[in-house]
Design a protein around this nucleic acid. Structure first.
Length: 788
DNA sequence: CCAAGGCCGGTTTTT
DNA sequence: CCGGCCTTGG
């Protein structure tokens, strides 16, 4: 159907193309069936601002996509008149797919459905000259950003150690999230970097402009600036975007809010969907205040609450609701389900992280491979969600050792890997010799004798004569400025790049083949094959993968334009596997079975976020806990350990306050065989929960628990940790002895030893069996000399 | 110019 | 305990 062609619509078209309305009048359209009353309300409230507060598992995406379908099917707007914004490409793709599924009209494309960043890039490319760029500007990622800043910091003669470029990048990023250009940075905020940050920010922006580049923050910021200073343009976009939809509204930052508001001031048909209880990105600039203040920002806004949950059992829901009820800054929702019953949230304490991992692996095996009624789950139905990625290690170690197939979601991104970035830099330089950042990155990768000194002289030459670094290198070569090895290496490099770029410009030959040749001739493959580290093989594989992925594009340029913004992580979905990921990565997902380990003070809630902002930090951590629990459909297990190894040391852990906040009525406390929670919780309680009936699964995890030696160790540890308090609100009142050198001590894991040295709380102890370790004094007790 | 060893520091992560 | 980054010695 021609009318749904995504092509550009002329501006100033009739407001309502209703004369061409599809035959949708009469009985309610089929796509509205199956929506509940609230969802229907959210779909049909098309005029004016709408805030949809969509709790976890309440059909948020369904509502959003149906709303788009409804706008289209009722002929309120053309596809090109709908602005639909998400945060991730994944969400955008899913939405596009589901609109197509719902709509029988086969909308092949909604041109303005995408992430904040990709839509901004699209707008910016059209009007690049107004932002001091040309249409082919490149988008720098964090790595490029830091490299560039490092150069500037160095040039300013600032101590790089005291003010690392990373930190400066973070400051600038924060300012951009606030929508502040250098001139907008308020005096009271400009103290960073000894007050030099604003100046560096200004230089950085100038540098970006001359490089014809923007960073991620600029995409939003520059679009706002563009529209603010061009009334015509703004009016044009406001007329175009008749309906605006925003996903995950709780995660937007100030710049994104201003961005949205500019577009929305036209028609005000803006519909934002979000859940303030799932706002977990405050640390990177997201401001919950935006969703809390929606009704002030958009007066007359209609608020629709989606509270019927279709995901979790009632116990899981109630536990999550009770937990999040402890937060102050809420608009308030009460999730409910009409499906009764289900398993209570399971709580269990362990001796240490390894025991916790072992227990989880045993449970997973029972659920997936076990016999009897419990065997109703596939590995793919099960997820382990952790607060921070360092917690994955112990799990992985354990899963590996028992051969339990798992997959880690959200590791390092494909295009952030060194080998990929190097290859991309070669492509960039071949496409544009002016890409100085690419040049600096790879001129000596692999090593070809072009070191710091050579680079500086190339840089100076380029600066002094206004050349690109690539040109400058050629000039210096011609003038014989370099000695033997450097000259040979650089000459070959220059010749290679020129040859590739000639092939590229001739327009002949296959770009996939060229890419392969570049990687090969540059010596990247050779470089990695010569490396003997275990991951080298994988890197060569990744390079092959990169070349293969080029097949989906028409040319190198097109590929590079997309690579910064939309490069999917290739997920290995081969076979059934348990998923391990961070809580952040789990947002938006659901699993029948969820394990939530390491709920311990300091880990979760994380000490650092509490230190940074005690109140806001705690609330965000609590929302993270809420996100975790609400991922579970049927079985949710929260666990903690009494001891955890980190940074090579051991530390004694206290159960998270969030465990206390789960009501007794919705939880059951399990105990691992032969061990009462690892902690000695006074009268057998875990975070205030009675330890009631034993493990649900009936399978016995491991016999090691009942081995006599193990039992003795547990017994011993119980005595030693007795009185360590059942809640963090109660400080440890355990025997706090001051130790001195020469004292004989006992440690639960390492056994008997002698104190060598003391620095405050830190003891250096030489253990009889385990060598010398550094231990906090509270983890050891005085040994009475009765060791056997 | 570069490879090997010491030292410091170390959440969460998308675009 | 690990990895990144800087210093040192070839």
């Amino acid at each position: 159907m021609e009318r749904f062609n995504p092509g550009e619509m002329p501006t100033g078209l009739p407001l309502t193309p209703s004369d061409e309305a599809p035959a949708s009048a009469g009985s309610p359209p089929q796509y509205l069936e199956g929506l509940n009353a609230r969802q229907l309300e959210a779909v049909e409230a098309l005029d004016g601002p709408v805030l949809v507060l969509a709790g976890a598992g309440t059909g948020k995406t369904k509502t959003l996509t149906t709303r788009i379908a409804h706008i289209l099917c009722s002929a309120r707007a053309w596809p090109s008149q709908i602005l639909a914004v998400t945060f991730t490409n994944k969400a955008a793709n899913e939405m596009r797919e589901r609109v197509n599924q719902i709509s029988t009209l086969q909308v092949d494309s909604l041109p303005w459905l995408g992430t904040f960043h990709s839509i901004s890039a699209k707008i910016l490319r059209r009007h690049a000259e107004l932002a001091g760029r040309n249409q082919n500007f490149t988008i720098l990622d964090t790595d490029d950003q830091v490299r560039l800043l490092k150069q500037l910091v160095k040039a300013e003669g600032i101590d790089e150690k005291r003010w690392p470029a990373r930190q400066l990048a973070a400051v600038i990023d924060r300012w951009k999230n606030q929508c502040w250009l250098p001139s907008d940075v308020p005096a009271k905020a400009s103290g960073a970097f000894d007050g030099k940050a604003v100046g560096l920010y200004r230089q950085y922006q100038e540098r970006l402009e001359t490089l014809n580049s923007v960073d991620f923050g600029d995409l939003i910021l520059l679009v706002v600036e563009l529209l603010r200073s061009n009334e015509e343009l703004l009016a044009d976009y406001q007329r175009r975007f008749r309906y605006i939809l925003v996903d995950e509204y709780q995660d937007i930052n100030t710049a994104q809010y201003l961005w949205l508001r500019l577009f929305a001031q036209g028609q005000s048909n803006i519909c934002c969907v979000g859940d303030e209880d799932q706002s977990i990105y405050g640390w990177r600039g997201a401001d919950v205040g935006n969703i809390l203040g929606f009704e002030q920002s958009f007066p007359e806004a209609r608020v629709v609450r989606l509270e019927q949950n279709y995901r979790s059992t009632s116990h899981i829901l109630s536990a999550a609701s009770a937990l999040i009820g402890n937060n102050e800054g809420r608009l308030g929702k009460t999730l409910w389900t009409d499906v009764p019953g289900g398993e209570k949230v399971r709580l269990i304490g362990h001796w240490d992280g390894a025991a916790e991992a072992r227990w989880i692996s045993g449970e997973i095996e029972a659920l997936a491979y076990g016999t009897g009624r419990r065997r109703k789950y596939e590995l793919g139905d099960i997820a382990v969600l952790v607060r921070a990625s360092f917690l994955m290690r112990e799990l992985e170690d354990c899963f590996l050792s028992i051969g339990l197939p798992y997959r880690v979601i959200g590791g390092p991104r494909f295009y952030e890997r060194k080998e990929i970035r190097d290859a991309l830099a070669y492509f960039r330089l071949a496409v544009s010799g002016a890409d100085d950042l690419a040049f600096t990155r790879i001129v000596n990768v692999p090593k070809r004798g072009v070191g710091e000194k050579a680079l500086v002289s190339i840089h100076d030459c380029a600066r002094n004569s206004g050349l690109t670094m690539f040109e400058a290198a050629k000039v210096l070569l011609r003038n014989n400025e370099f000695s033997g090895r450097t000259a040979i290496g650089l000459n070959k490099f220059v010749a290679n790049v020129e040859r590739w770029s000639a092939v590229l410009n001739s327009g002949e030959g296959d770009h996939v083949e060229l890419a392969g040749r570049i990687i090969d001739e540059a010596g990247l493959v050779q470089m990695w094959m010569n490396t003997k580290t275990p991951e080298a093989e994988g890197r060569v594989e990744n390079l092959k993968e990169l070349v293969k992925s080029l097949e989906k594009f028409n040319n190198l340029q097109g590929f590079l334009e997309h690579v910064a913004l939309v490069f999917e992580n290739l997920e290995d979905s081969v076979g059934e596997k348990v998923s391990i990921m961070t809580l952040h990565a789990a947002k938006g997902l659901e699993f029948p079975v969820v394990f939530l380990p390491a709920w311990e003070e300091g880990v979760f809630p994380s000490k650092r976020s509490l230190d940074e902002m005690p109140l806001r930090g705690l609330e965000e951590e609590r929302r993270l806990a809420y996100v975790g629990i609400t991922r579970a459909m049927e079985i949710c297990t929260v666990s903690c350990a009494a001891t955890r190894m980190s940074y090579g040391g051991w530390s004694s852990q206290v159960p998270s306050r969030f465990i206390d906040e789960l009501p007794n009525s919705e939880t059951q406390t399990l105990s691992p065989p032969g061990l009462m929670g690892g902690f000695s919780q006074g009268e057998g309680r875990l975070g205030g929960h009675d330890i009631s009936n034993a493990s649900f699964s009936g399978h016995s995890t491991s016999n090691t628990y009942s081995a006599p030696g193990y039992r003795r160790m547990v017994q011993r540890s119980r005595e030693l940790t007795a009185g360590s308090g059942r809640s963090i609100r109660q400080e440890s009142i355990g025997a706090k002895t001051e130790f001195a050198g020469g004292d004989r001590v006992f440690h639960r894991k390492f056994g008997y030893g002698v104190v060598q040295n003391r620095e405050g709380e830190r003891l250096e102890i030489e253990f009889k069996c385990s060598g010398t370790k550094r231990i906090m004094s509270r983890f050891v007790t005085a040994a009475d000399g009765t060791e056997s």
